[in-house]
């Protein structure tokens, strides 16, 4: 229900804060999934607002696949220090032992082992009963139908056909031991809302979102940044320095750059306004087939 006095961003902000407070009030042991991207930056900012003057009353969890951009990890360390966050980093030890990576095992297996499996391991290990995520309903078709309090079984599965009805802003927070919810405070935000809010609130984000000269190679129609020497170059591939930026951030071998000169927030937003492709286009993970995100989510992917 809307209020004419509050702008759309202030209404979205208030709704997110409400969700944060509900989860913290109703669950024993919540955690926030911190993926270092722009949505996580906004989520973190809202969490600080929700509980002020108290500190954020839950830890952050980063499921590290060991293939994130170097600048992401640097940014993470800086933010943790600046805000005094309690950050837990989990890397799937089985995956490391088997040497799983996107180049050797393919994107699907890499994501499954290092992200989905890693996440489940961490949730089980710390016995979290609620996990905040930065997913938005405008990102993908199956997300458009996901609840704000999204129930997960004791094996972390999502059953899209048996979701609890969600009315008004009254959330059903009841779970049995071992079961959990994923909570999505940014459900009703769009990509444009996120950028406008980052601009309005001057929220720090990873510099990779801004255009700069970076070494990239073109592969399968995507521009991949050569972030370290683990990337095997194929015949005829030579990294070229191009002015590029990223619309989303993930594992560097799976994240496509776009050519751009947008080096500040207004320019990024201006580019967005004329963009004709969605942000997920730069993600290999969604491309396998339609319905692939729904399947991954059922298995426990965020």
């Amino acid at each position: 229900m809307s209020n004419a006095r509050l702008s759309h961003l202030r209404q979205l902000e208030a709704e997110s804060i409400h969700i944060f407070r509900e989860v913290v009030s109703e669950f024993e042991n919540p955690v926030m999934l911190y993926s270092i991207g722009k949505d996580s930056s906004v989520l973190l900012h809202l969490a600080r607002k929700a509980f002020y003057p108290s500190p954020i009353p839950f830890p952050m969890l980063h499921v590290d696949t060991t293939w994130k951009f170097k600048e992401m990890i640097e940014f993470r360390e800086k933010i943790v220090k600046e805000y005094g966050l309690n950050l837990l980093v989990h890397i799937n030890p089985d995956g490391v032992e088997r040497g799983v990576g996107p180049f050797t095992h393919g994107s699907a297996l890499h994501t499954d082992v290092m992200k989905t499996e890693g996440l489940k391991q961490a949730l089980d290990h710390y016995k979290f009963d609620a996990a905040f995520g930065g997913a938005r309903r405008d990102e993908e078709a199956s997300r458009a139908k996901e609840r704000i309090f999204s129930f997960r079984t004791d094996t972390h599965r999502w059953d899209p056909k048996a979701q609890r009805p969600e009315l008004w802003n009254t959330y059903n927070a009841r779970v049995h031991p071992g079961e959990s919810i994923r909570a999505f405070p940014l459900s009703n935000w769009t990509e444009l809302d996120i950028w406008q809010y980052i601009y309005l609130e001057q929220i720090p984000i990873v510099p990779l979102y801004f255009a700069a000269k970076r070494p990239v190679v073109e592969r399968d129609g995507m521009m991949i940044m050569v972030d370290d020497d683990r990337m095997p170059l194929e015949e005829g591939e030579t990294p070229e320095m191009k002015s590029v930026r990223f619309r989303t951030l993930g594992c560097y071998p799976l994240t496509g750059a776009i050519e751009s000169t947008a080096s500040d927030l207004p320019e990024i937003i201006q580019e967005m306004l004329v963009a004709r492709t969605s942000e997920r286009q730069g993600r290999l993970i969604d491309k396998d087939q339609s319905g692939s995100m729904e399947r991954k989510k059922q298995e426990g992917y965020f």
């Binding site: 309903r137 405008d138 078709a141 458009a144 139908k145 899209p160 056909k161 444009l192 339609s290 319905g291």
Partner: peptide
């Protein structure tokens, strides 16, 4: 959005859409 819906040609749940 859900695969079952696309295959059966029916809408079985509430979906939220955004425009501005």
């Amino acid at each position: 959005g859900l695969q079952a819906e696309r295959e059966q040609g029916i809408t079985i749940d509430v979906a939220y859409r955004f425009f501005a």
